[in-house]
Design a protein around this nucleic acid. Structure first.
Lengths: 243, 243
DNA sequence: GATACGCCATGACGCAGCGTCAGAGTCAAG
DNA sequence: CTTGACTCTGACGCTGCGTCATGGCGTATC
């Protein structure tokens, strides 16, 4: 039988946390002294281990209680769900990193008094995009979202996308259907979906076509990642979409 | 001048949030009607855009206020810090995913009534490790942490590590100093550091030597990722450590 | 026996970033 | 005048504890 102090020292869990877990019914001590001190035995310690394991995996404490208390709980499914959730989080964070790097790259000083960065070329892009995929629902969605942002933000997004293309440029002499390139395509799709418009595989493929079309898009991208990047991106996207 | 409702519709921010931002002094409306309704003008809308931009990057609201209110604030540094923080989070989540997959792979049913999974081999491992790097501080740290875990947890960790080696096995015919392999080495180091013991480059290199040594380690890893995986891992680690 | 010091207990408040009522005032339309 | 949509403020809830505040034990020292 161990006191809170001992258990805390053994497991690294704070005393307050042990008290809290007792309060919310997650982990009751095995017994109490006459004066009400909590006492833990091996069984409760084992339970604590389980709790800490699932807690590390960022399960909410409520769920942990369910998982541990019901022996016929489908832990496999719970784990899979949690893995899926963690993967989502990871992708989200990756997008944020790209966005932040796009922001940083464009020189943060001009974030408020924005004016450089060749907005004219962005307009060309927009015009070309309009011509290419006209009034698709995705384009309307894009316009919707874009008008809710400042110039600076749109530029940052654009910049971040170019950052992804730059990453592609770095590996443009490797296999476009290789895992690295495919990973970047996934990243691109996730980024667009999160910040610009819903980017289905079809839409993505359309983008790929546009990139390789030889127009300003192609040039803009090659200027970013080096000659041949646009073509490489198209090939990678094509492979990604299974075409 | 727009009402809360309009601003909310335009930006997707909830009315409650606008009220909250007013309360904490993050975003005051430009003015009020006689009856006290909040009214926002273009300037306040622009400020809101800024807020949302930084909020998306997971800056705390307090920091956002500082960043926006002090024009001489070093946004570049703030962004870099945030990027570093996000990268840390990402790495942490990657580790969790590996851990969870390790858990799932070992068959979660045996998580509580643990017994299979050839514990004997794990003991061999431990013995060999003891012989190889004896009483280094890292090994003591490992023992410290290990005795605070259940058998099931340790097995899950072991399994997760094997998962990383399995990933290496998949690319064992490519370049060990290529970015993919290097990424996996980074992942391995991060995983070990987080779950087992502080894994400096030197320690990592020691591990690499051990892996390629031809003993049970080599066999265990090759069994996991296919013949040659251990050697490949050693080469990748060697390149990673710049040796 | 009194005191001092350390460990333990409960209970309340605080944190971030809002969501969600509750109760009440406002505004334009019917 | 009433209805219904919109707004206000204030208070509580959520997660997972950290951090007091206040007070009861336990043991060693004076």
């Amino acid at each position: 039988m161990r006191t809170v102090h001992e258990v805390s020292a053994m497991t690294g869990v704070s005393i307050r946390t042990l008290q809290y877990y007792d309060n919310i019914g997650l982990l009751h001590p095995a017994g109490h002294t006459e004066s009400g001190y909590r006492l833990y035995d091996d069984a409760s310690l084992e339970r604590l281990q389980q709790i800490l394991l699932f807690r590390e995996l960022e399960f909410p404490l409520k769920d942990i209680r369910e998982i541990i208390d019901s022996p016929d709980f489908d832990r496999g499914r719970a784990l899979e769900q949690q893995i899926a959730l963690l993967k989502l989080k990871k992708e989200h964070i990756e997008n944020l990193i790209d966005l932040a790097q796009g922001l940083k790259a464009m020189g943060v000083k001009h974030l408020m008094d924005f004016e450089p960065f060749d907005t004219s070329r962005m307009d060309e892009y927009a015009a070309q995009a309009k011509a290419s995929w006209g009034k698709t629902p995705e384009y309307r969605e894009y316009e919707e979202k874009a008008k809710g942002r400042t110039q600076a933000e749109n530029a940052a997004l654009h910049n971040a996308m170019m950052g992804i293309f730059a990453e592609m440029g770095e590996i443009r002499h490797e296999d476009p259907s290789g895992p690295q390139a495919q990973d970047l395509v996934r990243k691109l799709q996730a980024f667009i979906s999160e910040h610009l418009y819903t980017c289905s595989d079809d839409v993505l493929y359309g983008l790929g076509l546009m990139h390789a079309g030889g127009g300003d898009f192609t040039q803009g991208i090659d200027r970013c990642g080096g000659d041949g990047t646009a073509e490489f991106a198209y090939q990678a996207i094509r492979a990604y979409c299974g075409k």
